[in-house]
Simulated assay, not measured.
Amino acid sequence: MMAKAARAAAAWRTYREVTKPGSPGLMARVRAVPRMVGAVMRGQYSGLGKGKLALLGIGVVYILSPIDVLPDFLMVIGVADDFGVFLWLLGTLLGESGRYVEHERSIIQGNLEGA
């Protein structure tokens, strides 16, 4: 029961962050993910560490993998762990990519002011 409430709260926080006026929208965040990953790997963006990026990658592999900590044949329990990882992954990626879009905007703004 507590896990459901935590997942619902995380989903609500993500929704509020994405819909906040002035913040990057959902599609801007989604399109920024590949750029963010590339920038982190090239050492051009320090807002997201390589360790956290690796955890996000592990989350993707876990969701896609047929091997689970809690097997899916346990029905509700087996699917719930995948869903929990999915919500964490989605919330984290949207939050981090939003910060990355803001980082890009600040660089562009700085370049415009310096020109």
Score class of each variant (00 low, 15 high):
37 V>M: 12
62 Y>P: 00
89 L>C: 07
98 G>P: 04
40 V>E: 06
30 V>N: 11
17 E>R: 15
110 G>I: 03
47 G>F: 06
62 Y>S: 12
87 L>F: 10
73 F>Y: 15
39 A>Y: 06
4 K>R: 10
85 V>N: 04
86 F>T: 12
1 M>H: 10
99 R>T: 02
50 K>Q: 11
96 E>H: 11
111 N>I: 14
112 L>E: 13
44 Q>Y: 01
111 N>A: 13
60 V>L: 14
101 V>R: 08
80 A>R: 13
41 M>A: 14
82 D>L: 09
74 L>Q: 13
64 L>H: 03
87 L>C: 04
109 Q>H: 10
59 G>T: 07
111 N>T: 09
55 L>W: 00
96 E>N: 07
70 L>R: 01
93 L>K: 06
78 G>C: 08
99 R>A: 02
17 E>K: 14
97 S>P: 05
91 G>L: 06
66 P>D: 14
61 V>W: 05
3 A>N: 00
49 G>V: 04
98 G>F: 07
42 R>L: 12
83 F>N: 00
50 K>S: 10
109 Q>W: 04
108 I>Y: 07
82 D>M: 09
87 L>A: 08
57 G>A: 11
99 R>F: 07
48 L>W: 09
31 R>P: 06
71 P>A: 10
110 G>E: 09
92 T>G: 00
27 M>I: 09
59 G>K: 03
97 S>F: 00
17 E>N: 12
13 R>D: 04
35 R>N: 01
68 D>L: 10
104 E>V: 09
74 L>Y: 14
6 A>V: 03
106 S>P: 00
1 M>N: 07
43 G>E: 07
113 E>A: 14
4 K>A: 12
3 A>R: 11
27 M>C: 02
85 V>Y: 05
48 L>H: 08
93 L>H: 03
4 K>D: 08
51 G>H: 12
53 L>P: 03
1 M>Q: 02
53 L>Y: 09
22 G>Q: 06
29 R>H: 00
9 A>N: 07
84 G>P: 04
63 I>S: 05
85 V>C: 07
109 Q>G: 00
55 L>I: 00
76 V>E: 10
31 R>N: 08
45 Y>S: 05
25 G>W: 05
10 A>Y: 01
89 L>G: 08
40 V>Q: 02
24 P>Q: 02
64 L>K: 11
108 I>V: 15
39 A>Q: 09
15 Y>D: 08
